[in-house]
Write a protein that binds this DNA or RNA. Sequence first.
DNA 1: CTTGACTCTCTACTATAGTACAGGGTGTAC
DNA 2: GTACACCCTGTACTATAGTAGAGAGTCAAG
Lengths: 146, 146
Amino acid sequence: MAKEMKIGELADAVGVNIQTLRYYERLNLLQPSLRKPSGYRLYDDEALKRLRFIKNAQALGFTLHEVAELLNLRVSSIARCGDVQRKAQAKLLQVEDKIRALRALARPLRALIQHCRAGQPTDKCPILKSFEQERRRNNDTRKATG
Amino acid sequence: MAKEMKIGELADAVGVNIQTLRYYERLNLLQPSLRKPSGYRLYDDEALKRLRFIKNAQALGFTLHEVAELLNLRVSSIARCGDVQRKAQAKLLQVEDKIRALRALARPLRALIQHCRAGQPTDKCPILKSFEQERRRNNDTRKATG
DNA sequence: CTTGACTCTCTACTATAGTACAGGGTGTAC
DNA sequence: GTACACCCTGTACTATAGTAGAGAGTCAAG
């Protein structure tokens, strides 16, 4: 393990473009562990995990900025705990909110599949039922910094 | 109910920009139910629900294109059921996948909060633990049509 | 019948997240 | 020692999802 990969290998392993990795590097999201004298980037196993995390979190509706926040959440001698705890709590609420919303979305999808089997037409859009009420407005950090 | 709203009222109700509504109209995502002779757009209650749905689904990582697909899922005389069922099933899988991933993400967040309380430093990023394995590659329709 | 808030269309600009390409260097296989 | 696949930097382009502004019309209150 901890085998070193060139940029193309890492990109292939996760199914992203090489340019994307260089882009993430510029954003300080994903650093190569080492550079060869030639300048070639070398990535370790940690980078592979990190990259997968990024892609997963993105698919869940987190921006790259938020992904960075998630990845920087840790308790250390530098980071004050109260601060970390507050951020983690906020993220957890966001995550739990998303789970609730997805469950709400799954319900009419299942119903729809059932209706199909039963051959009952659903005249209006049944998916709309999923989130009838307003949800908590996203406490997104994008706006705060822009 | 079914009270009519002008574009500004609808925008305010959901907390979006007026321009965004006109943008969604161009994308065929959200149509006003009626136009006054003056050209003013009038929206009904259905539009309010639809708009909330759009914003919610977006926060869950669905693109506007995917949101449209979700909203068009219904069983009717025109839509063949097998087709609808296949699409609904695919979406359901996607939703269940997201739920799983979010649960995985919630776990280390909770642990982190606990660690904080206990005053234990977590030297490496504990969040990374959430998705160690590769997830199903997104069967996204964006690439298929582009 | 005017004032002020609201709306219309159209065009252009922005942010985020990539993606492509030019021009050049690296590394290994033959 | 030269192909060929791969990598480098830098710059420019793209798609998605908005946002802003100009110039003009609408509408209710006074």
